[in-house]
């Protein structure tokens, strides 16, 4: 049994050595964290507490860790309008009739804090994660040159909420055949004031010049 003394000591002291290295790296990491993210205000912290209170991590991932049942929320605040997110959190089904996220009883105040928290996390330096989808561009322009309306559609990030030919978000309705459902007047009016056309709509109003809205509408009408 004594013949194992050498390797036993290697186990004990080697293990302690690696823990010591880990401790030093941890110290250094903790020193660097504040420089890799915006300041944590009291509101952001309050949002984090609300996050824990409702066990959001039991469905979502954040920074890529958590449960894998619902979308990752690391960059959500950069991609979706904050007003929309607040409405969604308070009552997902009103914001998005197809939503399966349950109504958890989040108050308006709590929703505001959560959005502040999500906004903070979206600005953390994550070494480039999540990466830009490298195959996305080829998939979108497979039909060739983009029309003016298509470019506006892309630059206004409409695809965050709408699907076209299978690509895009599912918050709003699929727009693949919207041109056969809606006419020019409806579309233009809806862009300028969604709630007037669809009560309780959470679609953000489109902020763009009249000319751009005209071209966007032309584009919508080609989708039949």
């Amino acid at each position: 049994m004594n013949s194992n003394k050498g390797i036993r000591n290697l186990f004990i002291y080697g293990g302690l050595f690696f823990f010591a290295v880990m401790a030093v790296l941890t110290y250094d990491t903790m020193q660097q964290l504040p420089h890799r993210a915006p300041e944590i205000t009291d509101e952001v912290n309050a949002g984090k507490m609300v996050w824990h209170k409702y066990d959001c991590i039991g469905c979502h991932t954040i920074l890529g860790n958590g449960s894998y049942f619902a979308p990752d929320l690391t960059k959500t605040a950069q991609r979706k309008p904050h007003e929309y997110l607040k409405n969604f959190l308070i009552n997902p089904k009103i914001a998005n009739p197809k939503a399966t996220m349950p109504r958890l009883g989040i108050t308006e105040e709590e929703a505001g804090k959560l959005v502040a928290f999500l906004d903070w996390i979206s600005k953390v330096d994550t070494n480039g994660w999540p990466p830009k989808p490298i195959l996305a561009a080829p998939a979108m322009v497979s039909t060739g040159e983009l029309s003016a309306g298509q470019k506006i559609y892309q630059s206004l990030n409409c695809s965050e909420c709408h699907t076209l030919n299978g690509i895009g978000g599912t918050m709003g309705p699929d727009l693949t055949h919207v041109g056969s459902r809606r006419d020019r007047v409806w579309l233009k009016g809806h862009f300028k004031d969604p709630q007037k056309y669809v009560p309780d709509s959470v679609m953000p109003l489109v902020i763009a010049s009249d000319a751009d809205i005209e071209q966007l509408t032309d584009y919508m009408l080609t989708l039949k």
């Binding site: 194992n4 290697l10 186990f11 823990f19 990491t29 890799r36 999540p130």
Partner: peptide
């Protein structure tokens, strides 16, 4: 001993595979 030795030598700093993208 050989096993647990190598577990600690690789596993402790191996924690780093969770620190790629979380802001570290």
């Amino acid at each position: 001993y050989a096993e647990v030795c190598l577990v600690l030598f690789t596993g402790i700093l191996g924690t780093g595979h969770h620190y790629y993208w979380i802001g570290t």
